[in-house]
């Protein structure tokens, strides 16, 4: 097992020991309670509601988890002084950073797989049809989590956990609005506002590209080219942020 895998598995072990996996139990409970309630109050819209609640809860929990884990990833190491024992080892700082991020993403991925399995099991149990849009919604959420984790991770490489978490939450909300901001700004007659809208669109990740929850709710069709393009966008955005984090981290003194 190489140093990179050792770091990634250690990140997963950290999350497990810190009882992050309890989130899956909370998700299961939320699903169980909501379906029981939904069965009582809905007539004819059960499929839509179970999809909305399931995907919404999954998205909310995993987004919060990704922000929490990534925003403290490096700053916690520095505050607790664990960084001294790690960065002095014979591995590059870049390998250390990416190994830690991989550990985070392994945790998020395992939890998402467990939640998705629960969600689809619940849908099958209630004989609610599963469409390609459902799979797309779950799959694209994974890419959104990569982008958000990379934002938190970049911030964490040079600021405190509090600042990193605040910025990442802000990016989450702004990122879901960035395409709207772009469209609104492009309708303005002012060249400055148009340029500002464009700048916001290119600097912030366009997280609405990963949101296939409405497609799942309304059983709308999805195309593979659309999905591939969104996935490529997500990985490219993540790559740029991680590269930036590595550059900043390489220049840093650990006093």
């Amino acid at each position: 097992m190489g140093p990179f895998i050792a770091l990634a598995l250690n990140g997963f072990r950290e999350a497990r020991r810190n009882r992050v996996t309890l989130l899956v139990a909370i998700f299961a409970l939320a699903m169980l309670m909501s379906t029981t309630l939904v069965l009582e109050i809905t007539v004819g819209t059960f499929d839509r509601v179970i999809t909305d609640v399931g995907l919404g809860a999954m998205s909310l929990m995993l987004v919060l988890l990704a922000i929490f884990l990534s925003s403290g990833l490096i700053s916690r190491e520095i505050e607790r002084r664990t960084i001294f024992l790690m960065v002095s080892k014979p591995l590059s700082r870049g390998a250390f950073l990416v190994g830690r991020l991989a550990g985070n993403m392994l945790t998020v991925t395992v939890l998402q797989l467990l939640m998705a399995a629960l969600f689809f099991a619940m849908m099958s149990f209630y004989e609610s049809p599963i469409s390609p849009a459902h799979l797309a919604a779950v799959g694209m959420l994974w890419f959104e989590l990569w982008v958000l984790s990379a934002v938190g991770f970049l911030m964490s490489s040079f600021s405190s956990q509090m600042v990193s978490a605040f910025v990442t939450v802000s990016v989450y909300f702004a990122g879901h609005l960035s395409s709207d901001i772009y469209k609104l700004a492009s309708k303005s007659e002012s060249g400055a506002i148009q340029a500002l809208g464009k700048a916001v669109y290119y600097v912030l990740p366009d997280l609405s590209r990963f949101n296939y929850r409405p497609h799942a709710t309304y059983y709308a069709p999805v195309t593979s080219s659309e999905l591939l393009s969104a996935a490529a966008y997500g990985m490219a955005f993540t790559g740029v942020l991680v590269a930036l984090a590595v550059v900043l981290f390489n220049r840093r003194d650990f006093r």
Partner: peptide, 26 residues
């Protein structure tokens, strides 16, 4: 290297931490 007031990962056992260090050393 042993830093001043060393801070190994607290969630690991002593054996796990030394093993991790060994792995990072190849």
């Amino acid at each position: 290297y042993v830093p001043e007031n060393p801070a190994p990962y607290e969630y690991l056992t002593g054996r796990e931490f030394v093993t991790l260090s060994g792995r990072l050393n190849g």
